[in-house]
Design a protein around this nucleic acid. Structure first.
Lengths: 195, 195
DNA sequence: GTAGGTATACCGTACAGTGAGTGTACAAAG
DNA sequence: CTTTGTACACTCACTGTACGGTATACCTAC
């Protein structure tokens, strides 16, 4: 009996989300996703043209929540601008404590698909990171940071570095250091009034 | 006719290096490696216990050359310490220009194996990154940088970020920005005489 | 020095499992 | 009665790993 369409589709995406993130793209089969979603592989292929399609969808679902998490950490923080930037890294450090944390899904997906630069997932991942960067640039510009785009870019670079280093070393101090560096850069740009 | 043993082994590693780096771990089969090395799969299994073994060896071969490249860029650079640190990023930016560049092999491998923290490749990757970090810390300490370990850590974080961002956006400006940030941090630590 | 044995290095083949993707049938909804 | 959504059963190529066999190199006893 056909369920309400969109519901099945969402169930599949949720299953894909879990498995792709936990085990990686290549290591996750559509069989496994279908089983976890409680549907047949044929149904998966009804809702998605191909595995590549599903990969892109998987990343797309992570875009908004990720960005909102960053924004929440920043907005809820008190203190000077560098301190509030550091709060983003503190927030990241917390999520990393989760047993199921496996690095940045965007980074890992792009890493696996490195040989397929035209893959749809690439665009989704790149767009997500640029959204984060733009948001930061906007916040910095609002607060009179000179060269806000440059500083935002540098902060996102530290975020990327923190994700990568954390996955590699499983040592939370790397996030702390990244937060320190970001705070340093933002603070320096504010006091210097010119990069 | 048995060849000189070590030579065959090296041939296999070279083939694995190329394919693992280009296509990723999961996407590269032992068949493909054996074929490229001009041997049979049986021979691969004679020299390596398993694919996981070969993965670790693949990363191990990238350790020394990578470190030496960083050192060369730093040593050959002229100018102030921040400028010489920036030279490392300039060096990275150049390699990225290569058509075959596919990000940091360590980062991508660890990303694929994120669900297997006990994998031997993890140790190799982590050790490599720590070697780079230690070397930087040593250079900084020699030049009177306060908290050299902290600054070295932050610079390596920017390196990681540069690799990740470059792979995602294919835009060399990210490396430049990372270099700017690193130079800023090093310069700031030198002038401030305390982080 | 040479017969016979042992270790080394390599190949061909087999196998059991899994991967993405498809053809077709069938039930519900409109 | 046509469209939509789901299931079952299937193909076919590929993948990691194991087994058995073979040719050369090396070593030791006589």
């Amino acid at each position: 009996m056909p369920r309400s369409g969109a519901k099945t589709r969402d169930t599949i995406i949720v299953a894909a989300n879990t498995l792709f993130y936990r085990f990686g793209i290549k290591a996750t089969s559509l069989d496994a996703i279908a089983e976890r979603a409680g549907v047949t592989k044929r149904t998966v292929y009804y809702h998605f043209r191909s595995k590549d399609d599903l990969i892109a969808e998987y990343l797309a679902t992570r875009d908004q929540p990720n960005l909102e998490a960053f924004q929440a950490w920043f907005e809820q923080a008190r203190g000077t601008l560098p301190e509030r930037v550091r709060a983003i890294f503190d927030g990241v450090a917390e999520t990393i404590g989760h047993a199921r944390w496996r690095g940045c899904g965007f980074q890992r997906t792009v890493g696996e698909l490195a040989n397929k630069p035209g893959h749809p997932a690439f665009k989704v991942a790149s767009a997500h990171k640029k959204r984060v960067e733009s948001w930061l640039a906007y916040e910095f510009q609002q607060r009179g940071v000179p060269h806000p785009e440059d500083i935002a870019c540098q902060v996102t670079l530290l975020l990327e570095g923190a994700f990568a280093a954390m996955l590699m070393h499983r040592d939370r101090r790397y996030v702390t250091q990244a937060g320190n560096a970001a705070a340093c850069i933002v603070g320096h740009s504010l006091s210097g009034r010119s990069r």
